[in-house]
Design a protein around this nucleic acid. Structure first.
Lengths: 232, 232
DNA sequence: CCAAAATTGGATAGGCCATTCCAGTTAGGT
DNA sequence: ACCTAACTGGAATGGCCTATCCAATTTTGG
């Protein structure tokens, strides 16, 4: 591994100068609130301005917007993983799963940036994706137990959870501060439809690969670097 | 009514020159496919290019992007109103409502622009909003009948339908062509949660006014005209 | 205290966007 | 055929975006 790798939370092979480290921390903290308030489409310039640093400082530390996003949401993903853990500790598997879904959707409502991050995948952000995978493993267990307990419909799949994130992101993004609790109703409805016994069959879930492609596409058009013009 | 009103489908007080009328029709037809394919954020320039007209021609006929959007989606709104009519003609109120929701969500999946239009409101586009109101009246009836027949949960409100549109728009936008049928599963789940008897209570629905504000906000940030800079 | 290395911020490049301007072209009545 | 009002397209304006450059400043080891 390249010893100069600096992003994410590695303790740095080449420690930053003290002022640089301070700025780095302020940038992440500020970006967290800005992305949380304005969504992922908040501009790099607005983050720099609110953090009180120059644009160049921001880009030297995070060469692309995607890297900043990854650094900022690493800790949200930790919380996500923690939520899975809490759910797995619940002696009632259904209660655990339902609580997990409510918790995560609440996180989406509280952070417009995270709402979108959950519907995207950033292959270059290893730390972020590792956490996503950890969470996935836990979710699979959670689902298995809830089915075994007879409380979750048998045709539920992990992909359905992603669909919940996408649907909830749609509601949260559309309602914003104007109807800040609307998502709760939607989530409650979805949960009732997940509970066993199923009221009827469902169309097939999307292929995991297809869903991955969708999440990838979304992240790419998020930080679309201006590709050089090419002559035809 | 202003006899000079030109947009929407009024037969025109001041008829356009034949070539202008032809271009106008081509612009609308092209914009329909472009917005349907790329969503509402497709650029005016791309519409002009694909329609084979100059940018100026486009803007002379539709002075703002919002007016073009309104003109383009007037007929989708007709289809929306028609779908309500079909549902009301169904002798089985629940079957009618469920079919209506499926139909409209399918329209969202087939037209990324319309998916967003259904979650927004354009106060200046009278023709569009009139149709939306017509549809709303029908939907209220539809809901009433389905409840009366004992097939729809008693706490269902017309606002829930808007929430369905928002959630479905989220799924459709996030999955795109990568998982083109994922929305069907989500909609099927939602429908099962709507069916009586309710499996449990729900959080309160959003206030109609609040939801309106949310839809308004969305439409405004869609075609954000560059406001003049002001000195502090 | 001093120099070298690290870091800084503002200007700049180059991309997209909605919208406006203007000089040239065309339809269509006479 | 011709004249004029209507219409045209492309260039220009001004905004916002990600990302880069560079001259000036700051930290820090000796």
């Amino acid at each position: 591994m390249d010893p100069r790798a600096r992003s994410s939370s590695a303790p740095a092979a080449q420690p930053l100068r003290s002022d640089a480290e301070r700025n780095r921390a302020r940038i992440i903290a500020t970006a967290r609130t800005v992305f949380g308030r304005d969504g992922l489409h908040a501009s790099m310039a607005s983050v720099a301005r609110e953090a009180g640093v120059g644009i160049a400082t921001l880009f030297r530390r995070f060469p692309t917007k995607e890297e900043l996003v990854a650094a900022v949401f690493a800790d949200r993903m930790d919380a996500y993983v923690d939520a899975v853990g809490v759910a797995l500790d619940d002696p009632d598997p259904w209660h655990g799963l339902a609580g997990f879904i409510e918790t995560v959707c609440a996180m989406q409502a509280a952070d417009y940036g995270f709402a979108d991050v959950l519907t995207m995948t950033f292959p270059t952000a290893k730390a972020l994706e590792k956490r996503r995978d950890q969470a996935y493993d836990g979710v699979v267990q959670l689902i298995g137990r809830a089915k075994a307990a007879g409380r979750l419909r048998e045709d539920f799949t992990p992909e359905d959870l992603v669909l919940v994130h996408m649907a909830n992101a749609g509601v949260v993004n559309a309602t914003g501060d104007a109807a800040p609790d609307a998502w709760k109703r939607v989530v409650a409805l979805m949960l009732q439809s997940f509970e066993a016994p199923a009221r009827g069959p469902l169309p097939d879930p999307p292929e995991p690969r297809a869903l991955y492609k969708a999440m990838l596409r979304a992240s790419q058009e998020c930080s679309a670097s201006p590709e050089p013009v090419r002559k035809d």
